[in-house]
Design a protein around this nucleic acid. Structure first.
Length: 503
RNA sequence: GCCGCCAUGGCGCAGUGGUAGCGCAGGGGCCUUUUAAGCCCAGGGUCGCAGGUUCGAAUCCUGCUGGCGGCACCA
């Protein structure tokens, strides 16, 4: 690095500023290749195309009087070449570059002896000197911590690793396009909330100084979107970050992206249809990203998806028939315990069912499956089944052993809603930190009348993981949350220690 | 929060109690069609941090920090 600083200073002294230089290109590397191909297909009529490209130098090879460099831009790679005899100034320029430098280059396109499309440099301009080298050029950054903490270095050193993030953007764009096409209104609701509701999770707490009041970061989008149904919007959705103060894992991050959509006058079936459509569009959008053919997708995400009731899944997988044993909760609990299923204290039949499902069934559901009819006790915002009030008109879409979507016919009975909040509040007082808090403001909205509606929430990061074949949520989040400790406080231990870098 | 594994030059890795090595990158040199170019030369590391055991510690022990994996909880 010291040598690079000297190089930069020498350039400045020689009247060639190493930064803040402009260069107008006439296309990307990919477009340059297309122009060369077109020229060749036209039987090389006339002069070869002259192009101006700009990008980062990630490979340098020189052999005496010939020098090559690999220029990478957002579209791909183009080789640069200069020879001492033919073009002394460009040759000196090219051999004086360092890996990582960002340059502009102009000249005719040719092919080398090996057939590599190559820009023969006529004019070369240094646009930004790299004082630090990229990571190792063959293996790139392998250390996971370094890759997450210094994502810019990871991505610049290994351009192919940008692809999942391009796919992510394509997926989010497709979700938005499909919802827009269906007439949903995209809205933005508060992230800072006095009462974090709409889900079961511990929130992050923060402090508003001017209000002298505690606020929480939202854990879900649900309650505000339902207020908008009350307000008269028939179809609304929000795509946004939510925050949950819970453990991390390859599939859990403290902040993640959620899509929630609400549609008046449709029930659960409408949400099934919408879910299948959105997943289908997401898959198509991701597959349309260039270079995606070799994506490793372990789960077939083509709709339609299987449907199964939770009670049936549990009965078939675990051998416990919760419906049959509903009136004998002690026996149900004993049966579950004898199979090694962990249960909360005083388990009701519903809690036995959910425990068996979550512990024994969910992770086994690889192929996308709509899991239907969750019990009321764990579904405080969902409408009851008309023919069985113990269960709700809810589903979760599970794929790859993980919940991807949670949806239901929304409860619009303010009396029932109040009772369920009270029940949740009792659990909260009993120490359940994730029980839903009482929310009078939301109840007041419901009391004005909310149309019957279906609602769904989709974990965008998980969808992106499934669609791109990523093993960890951190592989589809650009800058994942990491602990900030002494040892990992900054990117460069040498500089943090105050010593001079030894590069 | 608990359990296990990991941490060695800028990056990728080797080194299991006896003077820290290799490749890439960086520096110097050779080479006019290279593709992780090749060849020669010379550099660069308080082995994550702090203690301990030992004549002697990268190596064994303890604690701490960070990461990864699992459990618990959730999407």
């Amino acid at each position: 690095m010291a040598a690079r600083r000297r190089t930069a200073e020498a350039l400045r002294a020689a009247g060639t500023p190493p930064w803040n230089v402009d260069f107008t290109r006439d296309g990307t590397a990919l477009e340059a290749l297309r122009r060369l191909t077109a020229y060749e297909q036209a039987d090389r009529a006339g002069e070869p195309p002259v192009v101006r490209v700009a990008g980062r130098i990630l490979g340098l090879r020189s052999s005496g009087g010939l020098a090559f460099a690999d220029l990478h831009d957002e579209s791909g790679r183009l080789q640069l070449m200069a020879d001492r005899g033919g073009a002394p100034a460009p040759f000196e320029w090219l051999t004086g570059l360092d890996l990582g430098d960002i340059v502009g280059a102009a000249g005719p396109l040719v092919r080398t002896r090996r057939g590599e499309p190559t820009l023969r440099v006529g004019e070369g301009v240094l646009l930004a000197k790299a004082l630090r080298p990229p990571a190792e050029k063959f293996h790139g950054l392998r250390d996971r911590e370094a890759r997450y903490r210094r994502r810019h270095l990871d991505l610049l050193s290994t351009p192919g690793r940008r692809r999942p993030f391009v796919q992510r953007a394509a997926i989010i764009g497709a979700l938005r396009a499909e919802l827009d096409r269906r007439g949903f209104l995209e809205v933005e609701t508060p992230i800072l909330q006095p009462i974090p509701g709409g889900g079961r999770a511990r929130p992050f707490a923060t402090r508003h100084h001017a209000f002298d009041q505690d606020l929480f970061l939202r854990i879900a989008l649900e309650l505000h979107l339902k207020r908008l149904l009350v307000a008269g919007f028939g179809r609304v959705y929000e795509l946004g970050r939510v925050f949950r103060n819970e453990g991390l894992s390859p599939r859990h991050a403290p902040e993640f992206t959620m899509l929630e959509a609400y549609q008046a006058h449709v029930g659960r079936e409408g949400m099934v249809e919408l879910t299948e459509a959105l997943v289908g569009k997401a898959v198509a959008a991701a597959d349309a990203v260039p270079g995606t053919a070799e994506t490793e997708r372990t789960v077939d995400l083509r709709p339609p998806f299987r449907r199964a009731r939770m009670v049936d899944l549990v009965r078939d997988a675990v051998g416990i028939d919760v419906l049959a044993g509903w009136d004998a909760p002690e026996e149900l609990a004993a049966a579950a315990r004898s199979l090694g299923v962990g249960l909360p204290p005083d388990p009701t039949p519903a809690l036995v069912l959910v425990a068996c499902y979550e512990e024994r069934v969910e992770r086994t559901l690889e192929a996308p499956t709509f899991v239907l009819d969750h019990p009321v006790e764990t579904s405080p915002l969902a409408r009851r089944l008309p023919d069985d009030p113990r269960f709700t008109e809810r589903f979760e879409l599970v794929a790859g052993g993980r919940e991807l979507v949670n949806a239901f016919a929304e409860l619009n009975d303010p009396v029932d809603q109040r009772e369920r909040f009270l029940e949740q509040a009792r659990r909260r007082e009993a120490g359940d930190l994730e029980a839903h808090p009482m929310d009078e403001d939301f109840l007041e909205a419901l009391e004005h009348g909310m149309p019957p509606a279906g609602g769904m929430g989709l974990g965008v990061d998980r969808l992106v993981m499934l669609v791109t074949g990523a093993a960890a949520i951190r592989d589809v989040v650009l800058f994942p949350t990491l602990r900030q400790g002494e040892a990992g406080a900054g990117p460069d231990p040498a500089e943090r220690a105050g010593g001079s870098p030894t590069l």
